[in-house]
Structure formats: structure tokens, C-alpha cells
Design a protein around this nucleic acid. Structure first.
Lengths: 155, 155
DNA sequence: AAAATAATGGTCAAGATTAGTCAGAGAAGC
DNA sequence: GCTTCTCTGACTAATCTTGACCATTATTTT
């Protein structure tokens, strides 16, 4: 149960200080220092755990007074967010990214647990493997976007 | 009955530490070390004894902080309906037949209306067309059967 | 102003740390 | 003996951690 990597801990910390706020601003070097890791590890945590698929937008600025801003967003509510998401999907998605999106929809209460599980099944490697890995990712993208459109326009 | 293999012992141990919890997280190397076997034997035990047919779901993560998580799930009672449907599907279904099956599930109260709608999205020609009509029907069969297998249990 | 300097964050690739796969050897059951 | 189950280890894959080097912005100096 206590097999957390330092990345997991940093992720939890960032979500903690994000709390109920819409966004939070950090200094990369401060966080890195706080957890005694190299600064680029903060980039790693953000890149792997605060993606649009996970329901986060991240902006940053370099130079003096620089910052990293993490913003929590709803995938289907905001047209711009949905567009970013669809753009991120493009015509090809890996299983992992698709799973993240479904989990985010569940956490936003857009879908129930069971609905999410069914979606995951239809997006899984297991169900979609058709020999060609690229074709599989294309197919997954089509199914996922169909799901999103269905959810978007239904209610 | 007295000649337990080491795999049997590891199985019993895992079920022991699972206890009444819904799930348990282990480190493959720790367990392997504890019983003085090669790590891949843990995979063998899990693959042969913690299957979904036996009511277990297994997830894992590699890399630093990696783990294997074993979760116990409740198998449901609609097995008869599901089995007969899987029989009927075989390895190929046309869109129309898939739609009929989903409707049957709805009428049998195995799924909700909304769950059915999502399933239909993933089974539609629109989402699945991949040029080859036969391949499409095979694919649809795999997705549909995956759906049905997922409906066998709740988590 | 323009140029130099300081103060940020970004990228990428190598190495470390886990778990997964698979084929074959060995053991047990029939 | 033959078949099935168990066990092993070499090879593969995924994820995390680190550090050298790069890019951008603000501030200070000339």
C-alpha cells in the first residue's frame, strides 16, 4: 500500500494545494526543493499527471517572476476545453490516454462508474487489437470521439 | 491433498493478506523473495488463480513505485443471459444483430438505457468502419463480447 | 536604447527500478 | 508413457529519476 514513488507524492501534494480552487500557481524550483528532487522532475509529474486527459490545463512563464499554473477544468462543459481535448486526441489515441479521459469524466460526474467501465472495455487493447497498432489507435480515437459527442449532446 | 505446490502456498498467502479487504497491493519482488522463487512465478500464480472467472481483477504498474494490485469483485447472477448471448454472437456480428442484443440486455434489465446507448455508439458502423466489412464484424463481436464479460461482475 | 546578467522554466536522453512474456525444463497426476 | 501443471530465467516493456544543456523573461549595467 505504501509503494508511492516521489512523483506520486508530488502529484498528491499539488492536488492538495489545489484543493477546491480553480487553479494554483507554483514555482518549479520551490516544489523541487521542498521534495529534494531535481526541478525537471516537476515537469515530469505535470506531464504525466496533469494532462488535459486528466482534466487539467497547465500554463507557465519563464524568466524572473516565472511560474507554473495548474488549472482544473471540466472536459465537456467548456467548448474550448473540449476542443483542446479533441485536438489532443486527433485521429489516434493510445489506450492509456483514453483511459485517463474516461476516468476524468467519471470524476466530473459526467458518467457513472459502470458507464465508465463499459467505455473502458470498448477502448481497451483487448477489445480493439486488430493486428496493426496504428490502425488500432485510429479506431480507438473514432470510438472515443463518438462517446464524447454522445455525452455532449444528450443532456 | 497434502502435496501443496509453492504456487498453492503463495495463492493462500495472497488470499490471507487480502482478508476482508476489497483489495491488496503487493510488490512482486517482495513476494518472490519471501517465498524464494523467481519473480515471474508470481505472475504465474496470479494468471492461474486470480482470474476474473474466480472473481478477481488485477492491475499493475511497472517502474519505480510499481505494484501489483489484486481486487476482489462480486460476480453477478445474469450469467445465463450473458452466456446464451455470447453463444449467439460467435466471432462475427452485423450492426443490426448487435443492436438487437443490446436491446435485449435493456429489456432484461441487465443494463440501463444510457449504458445501452453508450454500447450502441461503440458498436455502430459509424465508429467501427475500417474498410473491410468482414473484419468490422469480427471487431464488433470482440467488443460486444467484452461488454458482456464486463457485465458478469460488479466492482 | 542596447547589451549584459540574472532568474526563471523546458527538453531530452541515459540510467535505475520496477513488472510482463514466453519458451522450455522439471514435476505430478493419470 | 503421456498429459497437464509448475517453475525458471533470459529477454522485453513501462515508469521513474537525474542532470546536462536550452529558451524565455526580467533586471541591471553601459
Amino acid at each position: 500500500m505504501e509503494n508511492k514513488s516521489i512523483s506520486d507524492i508530488i502529484e498528491a501534494y499539488l492536488k492538495e494545494i489545489l484543493g477546491d480552487s480553480a487553479q494554483v500557481e507554483i514555482r518549479r524550483s520551490e516544489i523541487a526543493n521542498h521534495f529534494d528532487v531535481v526541478p525537471s522532475q516537476i515537469n515530469y509529474v505535470i506531464k504525466t499527471r496533469f494532462t488535459i486527459q486528466n482534466g487539467y490545463l497547465v500554463k507557465s512563464k519563464r524568466g524572473g517572476g516565472g511560474y507554473i499554473r495548474i488549472e482544473r477544468v471540466n472536459l465537456l462543459d467548456d467548448v474550448n476545453v473540449l476542443n483542446s481535448l479533441i485536438q489532443a486526441i486527433g485521429d489516434s489515441v493510445r489506450e492509456r490516454d483514453a483511459f485517463d479521459i474516461v476516468r476524468t469524466l467519471y470524476e466530473e460526474n459526467v458518467i457513472t462508474r459502470r458507464e465508465g467501465d463499459l467505455m473502458l472495455v470498448a477502448l481497451s487493447k483487448q477489445a480493439l487489437s486488430i493486428g496493426d497498432s496504428k490502425a488500432e489507435d485510429h479506431l480507438r480515437a473514432r470510438i472515443l470521439i463518438s462517446f464524447l459527442n454522445r455525452l455532449r449532446y444528450e443532456s
